[in-house]
């Protein structure tokens, strides 16, 4: 992206320049390369479309017998005609709230410290390497962490196999992604912006608050989108921590009781439905996957809207 401070270069017509230099007007190899790139794009798109088609196609039988609202408001059940996703949506949103409240501020704060305050020494370099490696650690490993720490060690606080354990595990799972993307966004803030701030007598905190963070906000939000998507789709840590898969009834209780109580999440519903007998359950798996995709899309669009908002404010 171009910045405000450097004007764009004069555009040079590549074809004219090449024709003048080499005397050839047709760039066959260039065209072939372009074609290959286009093919790659189409192949990726085709896979995506095929995936969407198979999910929608698989889900159609569900909505022939019952309304969309009935499926959305239904709960876990042993009977395919009553099975629905409301508890899964609730659990997945609960997990996202944990990610938003814990991973987002912690991650951004860590990134600000690493980029703005930490000097380049052995400690900060080690932390950087660790964070980068943590971002690549498979989800199952975080599931084990959740099992031992949140379900085991802190079991009295979290309530064991609870929404809180799942939310905390997911928050930690995505934390490195948030740190890395936020740090990269902060690193991309032009140095003159900071210097101008200092020149006007602002303190470091004031420069970060009024210049660096607003400038980096779109990039930071992109990281959030990625982390939300990951937290929403992961099933492996939930499998290890344990979720309700057959039935989940709750008579309510305080917010804390519910956080400490059993839960289920959308990816788990997909998984459960694929293991039950009969085609009916397989269509329910597709329908649940479709709901998962829609929730993901909604969460992502919200983050993209927020990013656009900050981008507009910047220019």
């Amino acid at each position: 992206m171009s910045t405000v401070l450097t004007p764009p270069d004069e555009a040079i017509d590549a074809e004219v320049a090449r024709a003048v230099e080499t005397g050839r007007t047709l760039d066959a190899r260039g065209l072939a390369f372009q074609g290959a790139l286009l093919l790659a794009l189409l192949a990726a798109l085709a896979v995506l479309v095929w995936l969407l088609y198979s999910v929608v196609d698989g889900a159609i039988p569900v909505f022939q017998d019952r309304s969309v609202g009935d499926f959305l408001s239904g709960k876990l059940s042993g009977s395919p005609s009553r099975f629905g996703v409301s508890q899964g949506i609730r659990g997945s949103i609960g997990i996202l709230v944990f990610v938003g409240i814990i991973a987002f501020p912690l991650g951004v704060a860590a990134a600000v410290y690493l980029e703005e305050y930490a000097t380049d020494n052995l400690f900060s370099r080690t932390v950087n390497v660790l964070v980068r490696n943590l971002a690549g650690v498979p989800a199952v490993v975080y599931g084990l962490l959740g099992l031992f720490v949140f379900k085991g060690l802190l079991g009295d606080l979290t309530g064991g196999s609870s929404l809180m354990s799942a939310g905390l595990t997911m928050a930690i799972l995505v934390l490195p992604v948030v740190v890395i993307t936020a740090a990269e966004a902060i690193r991309a803030v032009p140095q003159p912006l900071r210097e101008a701030g200092y020149g006007l007598g602002a303190t470091q905190w004031e420069v970060i608050r009024t210049q660096v963070l607003p400038y980096a906000a779109p990039g930071i939000l992109t990281g959030t989108v990625l982390s939300f998507a990951r937290a929403l789709g992961e099933a492996a840590p939930l499998l290890i921590i344990g979720t309700a898969t057959g039935l989940l009834t709750s008579s309510g209780g305080s917010v804390l009781d519910q956080l400490q109580g059993n839960y289920t999440a959308l990816p788990m519903l997909v998984y459960v439905a694929t293991k039950r007998p009969a085609e009916e359950w397989l269509s329910l798996a597709s329908a649940s996957a479709l709901v998962l995709l829609v929730v993901l899309l909604v969460a992502n669009s919200a983050a993209i809207l927020a990013r656009n908002h900050f981008e507009k404010r910047r220019s």
Binding site: L76, L247, L248, T249, G261, N262
Partner: peptide, 11 residues
């Protein structure tokens, strides 16, 4: 018995 919370899982 709506007052009873029941959770069933199948690992």
């Amino acid at each position: 018995n709506p007052g009873v919370d029941i959770t069933v899982e199948g690992p």
